[in-house]
Simulated assay, not measured.
Amino acid sequence: MPVTLSVPLMACYQYTDVVFDSQGKLVARYRKYNLFAPEIQFDFSKDSELVTFDTPFGKFGIFTCFDIFSHDPAVVVVDEFQVDSILYPTAWYNTLPLLSAVPFYSAWAKAMGVNLLAANTHNTSMHMTGSGIYTPEAVKVYHYDMETESGQLLLSELKSQPCHVHITEVSNH
């Protein structure tokens, strides 16, 4: 029997992400921790927040943009809190060869064993595209339109508990 889920909405305002449930109740708030070099004029908290919340679809974590490059919070929230999916608002600049959004997000989701729901600022003049739904198995759907400024609603069926991988430290012997 098909199950209808009401997926939480997310919004980003001044590097603070908020998540509401289907009834409009605030269920999570996350403030960006790792600032990108041009953002050094902004205030940021001295300690990172590890934010998770439960839904009928599974356990979610959330972090923002440049946070994905740091162990804390990106790896910590996945590894220590055993989340199934990550909400990821971002203003990602697609730069080849290593920082193209679609392959980077796909590799990150696969390596971490979680669903990554990436919502990028769609600004083609700054090469900010690549919103998508990425899973450990495959790229489910993405939006990489460099011709127009129009956005797109992305929908996909996902496993609620993908193949989460436990991260271990690599020792140098």
Score class of each variant (00 low, 15 high):
36 F>T: 11
22 S>D: 08
19 V>P: 02
49 E>R: 06
22 S>Y: 08
54 D>F: 10
22 S>W: 08
24 G>F: 05
52 T>C: 07
40 I>M: 15
46 K>R: 14
53 F>R: 03
40 I>Y: 15
20 F>K: 07
44 F>H: 15
41 Q>K: 14
24 G>A: 01
29 R>Y: 08
51 V>C: 00
30 Y>M: 01
32 K>E: 05
35 L>F: 05
28 A>D: 02
47 D>M: 13
41 Q>V: 11
32 K>S: 04
42 F>Q: 12
22 S>Q: 08
21 D>P: 00
42 F>T: 09
38 P>C: 07
19 V>D: 04
47 D>A: 12
20 F>Y: 10
40 I>K: 15
31 R>C: 08
51 V>A: 00
27 V>A: 04
47 D>N: 13
48 S>H: 15
52 T>L: 09
34 N>F: 02
21 D>E: 01
22 S>G: 10
22 S>K: 09
46 K>W: 10
51 V>L: 00
21 D>N: 03
48 S>F: 15
28 A>V: 01
54 D>S: 13
25 K>N: 08
53 F>N: 03
36 F>C: 10
45 S>M: 14
20 F>T: 06
51 V>F: 00
51 V>I: 04
36 F>V: 12
39 E>Y: 06
23 Q>N: 14
51 V>N: 00
30 Y>F: 06
45 S>Y: 14
29 R>Q: 13
24 G>P: 03
49 E>A: 09
26 L>W: 05
24 G>R: 04
36 F>S: 12
31 R>M: 10
32 K>A: 05
48 S>I: 12
51 V>R: 00
42 F>H: 15
56 P>G: 07
26 L>F: 02
20 F>M: 09
